[in-house]
Design a protein around this nucleic acid. Structure first.
Lengths: 209, 209, 209, 209
DNA sequence: TATGAATGAGCATTCATTCAT
DNA sequence: GATGAATGAATGCTCATTCAT
């Protein structure tokens, strides 16, 4: 990815901020609908109602725009996860493990019901572009950290010794199943997949009663 | 995807078969190294040592070539999986569950050590292109069928009621972890991830002793 | 147009003649349906059920094929015109002028009801390709000659002094109206156009009663 | 024909209008000289002194350019016809029919002396391309309308009952003869053809003295 | 004679990016 | 800051034609 160009506009005027925002929104729309590779910067500018020149005033290129979109999106998601999980663990000291796991799975499904198309596109790039791959790994790392911190509060009811590895594996499994449901469509009834996933995670992490 | 074009050459001469093979091999090389979107049909032809016209004698377009590559690859993989799993289950009636699971995980890792770059690229397209998504789902379906058939022979030692859903979830989990290890690189020691994965699957599927 | 290649096959064997015929028929079909420019020699060969190599065994190129098609077609048409007109003039010494003209117009319409699509395509080339233009002029010349010869037998009832020019103008007018009817489709009832054309020609050529 | 693309530039800057004009002029030159099918968009751009990208900034494709050229041309022609015919009919109440007809024929010949090559090319496309055929029919319809309106003013001296059909037939005849003279070259002295055409039309439309 | 694989120039079109206004 | 015309390398693809088998 291009680096080092620092002369992109950091808007300090209202009109400017507005233009930047419109470009980002246009990008989200088009990347979701048409996909990254089928969307040109010109089309984004037109969809945003600006001149193509303005696009390059604010972003180095198409990729950097998607990076920015992903950054914003990921921050939102991150905040949501943190908040939800905190509530989950704090407010429910007496909740049984299976229910906690179910809540987690439900939350993951919720998160992916917001713009699954964009998520799909970014996931694709995660596989094909090293820059996005790196970003994805960082993102995963942050989420795992949250999980770890929270699960540590429940240490007594968990039976895994290598909690870090366990959390990673659980996270990956959840993501894979959620993708199948939200992006590709499950070939069998969703409910069955969700139950199986919940059971698997629960039996793995929690001591049997 | 374009369909129905019947004017592609089905080789009737020796030289022809050779050219087709060379194009496929060039495709594998370039798709792996540079990625699908950065590889043009012209570059493939050059790498194959043929004229661009020859490329279009054999394939409708770039996409169809990757489809063919994936088909060939997937058939090979499929045969390997079937053979390995059969051996695993048949020859080891007294093997304990944890070991069986470990073998399965090892096999999945083995399968992905062959041209992980190509696999990465195809996975990317699975997320961005409906045609590849469909192909991926079919592929998954076939693998799951094999698993199901074999696991059914061990029904007594398994504790899951909805075996189909269980197998799907386990398959997705395995794929996700293997991708992380083989494609993105695990941020922690691979061994730990592999163990955690094995434990999770084992505890999920098998009755506790 | 390429000239001078004399090594094209002049079939002397049955199989050969058959192949040549099949190519010509395939050419007629495709030129009519898809048009000259959208038809490639490869497609013609395939439609004919032969190898592309055979196409070039019999014809220098696509254009020469259409030339041959046009030559055959034009000979057939020519014979038909000659026969019809002869019958018309010989068998009807007492037929009134208006009726004779009407018969001529009807014949012209008849001739164009056979493969108007091919005729359309060739007319197009007559306008865009000098070789076809020349061919068209020669063709016109031959038809006019026939007309002239026959009309000369009726000299007494005609009032035109410059019969040659008159015949040319009448021929062009007929062709133009017939094209409109057969190729483009008349915007008003055909019958009205046909009547007007007949009236015009009759009043022009024949003495008023 | 492709429709609905709205992303072509509608010039808002001076330089833009100039470029568009240069492309149109280059198109006229090349289509006339080399013909539509032998002219590529690249050659047009080069002839216009612009980059190929600019061609596509202003026109969807080659065809749309020729459409635009034809539109401009046809508008000019149309205005000329209307003006000339009006003058002809208004200023000459006492002019005899044969002279009026002669003037009309002369005007038709005049109109075709401007860029007969381009006219030839467009006529060719009228026969091979449905979009151009439609355009041609519309154009013909407009001209016939003018004729009809004006001839109606002379109704008393005309003897045709179905004036609409008569005008169409006359128009087609004129066009055919003019094409022969201007595009293909008359095999006999032009003067003879012109006289014959004039006579034919006159005798058809006007009452005999 | 028949075959059909190979060829590569050429075409239409797109796109990221620049820069003068 | 905003604009949008200009640029031309690059891409996907076609096609007439050749020639070894």
């Amino acid at each position: 990815m291009k680096k080092g160009r620092q002369d992109r506009v950091r808007p300090k005027q209202k009109r400017s901020e507005e233009t930047r925002r419109r470009i980002i929104e246009a990008g989200i729309r088009l990347f979701s609908e048409k996909g990254y590779h089928s969307t040109s910067s010109k089309k984004i500018a037109r969809e945003a109602g600006t001149a193509i020149g303005s696009f390059y005033n604010y972003f180095d290129d198409k990729k950097q725009l998607l990076f920015e979109i992903q950054r914003l999106h990921s921050e939102k998601v991150h905040a949501m996860i943190e908040k939800s999980l905190k509530e989950l663990f704090e407010n429910s000291p007496d909740m049984d493990g299976r229910t906690i796991v179910q809540r987690m799975v439900d939350q993951a499904l919720d998160l992916h019901s917001y713009s699954p198309q964009l998520h799909r596109e970014i996931t694709s790039l995660t596989y094909s572009d090293p820059d996005f791959a790196e970003m994805g790994r960082k993102e995963d790392g942050r989420v795992i950290e949250i999980f770890l911190k929270l699960l540590n509060q429940q240490k007594d009811s968990l039976r895994t010794d290598d909690l870090e590895a366990a959390v990673m594996v659980v996270g990956l499994a959840m993501e894979a199943v959620v993708h199948t449901i939200r992006i590709f469509g499950s070939p069998i009834d969703e409910k069955r997949l969700i139950d199986a996933l919940g059971d698997m995670i629960h039996r793995f992490l929690y001591k049997s009663p």
